[in-house]
């Protein structure tokens, strides 16, 4: 999952980015409104965490521009403005959720998860593909009842494939969802992580869960088609 954080207060931005990254998300961030809009227009983010008072261009301006362009990216507003009017205006302008500063890490993560589920049209926080079960809240993965230990990046990759189970996800899509905008990672890193995941999910005698569609990408499912 790839997220954009636009927040001008550096300490808070750094902490939010760090919290989200440690939760397994790929996070781009900026403290400037105009730069934030450019980021949002140039990339396909799963979610934008947006502060309202920003230099250059404020949060309302960014939201208005995105919605006028027809961008459907989910937006979570993060602000110190707490009046009902502020919240109503924010939601009416096309924001998907509203979080008042100061806020707790757990609440931010829960709201991010909820918005991502909404994006992938899944109301169940638990993803199931065959006997593979992914708990998006606790980030625990079980295969046939056995817990599997995954790194953040591996989990993010598996979650993405599971959210789009049965659907081919291209390597560039995976790369975009897993790596920040300025990431120096090589594009073959996706294949490397697919390899790690396959090893952890491989069960002798049983068909693999991750399949390769040559020239396209990968998909997660019980059966080859």
């Amino acid at each position: 999952m790839r997220l954009l954080v636009i927040e001008d207060y550096t300490p808070l931005r750094k902490a939010v980015v760090r919290g989200l990254e440690e939760a397994g998300y790929a996070v781009d961030s900026t403290g400037d409104g105009k730069e934030g809009l450019w980021y949002a227009q140039s990339n396909d983010y799963d979610l934008i965490v947006l502060d309202l008072m920003l230099p250059g261009l404020d949060g309302w301006g960014i939201l208005r521009s995105l919605r006028q362009e027809g961008q459907q990216t989910h937006v979570l507003i993060l602000t110190a403005r707490d009046t009902v009017d502020d919240r109503v205006v924010g939601l009416d302008m096309g924001a998907d959720d509203y979080l008042i500063k100061p806020f707790a890490l757990e609440e931010l993560l829960a709201r991010v998860r909820a918005l991502l589920r909404r994006k992938y049209q899944s109301k169940n926080p638990s993803l199931r593909v065959g006997d593979l079960e992914i708990d998006q809240v606790t980030r625990k993965v079980q295969l046939g009842g056995n817990a599997i230990q995954l790194t953040s990046r591996e989990y993010a990759l598996l979650e993405l494939l599971a959210l789009r189970a049965g659907e081919v996800v291209t390597r560039s899509e995976i790369w975009e969802r897993l790596y920040e905008f300025n990431s120096q990672a090589q594009s073959n890193v996706v294949d490397v992580y697919i390899g790690y995941l396959r090893k952890k999910l491989d069960r002798p005698g049983l068909p693999p869960l991750i399949h390769t569609r040559r020239g396209h990408g990968y998909w997660l499912g019980e059966y080859e088609f």
Partner: peptide
């Protein structure tokens, strides 16, 4: 109140993320 909220949010969130693991 508004001006103190943002640094307080930064302070609290930095500590929370720091202590999360």
């Amino acid at each position: 109140a508004h001006e103190l909220r943002t640094p307080l949010a930064g302070l609290g969130f930095t500590l929370e993320v720091c202590l999360s693991r």
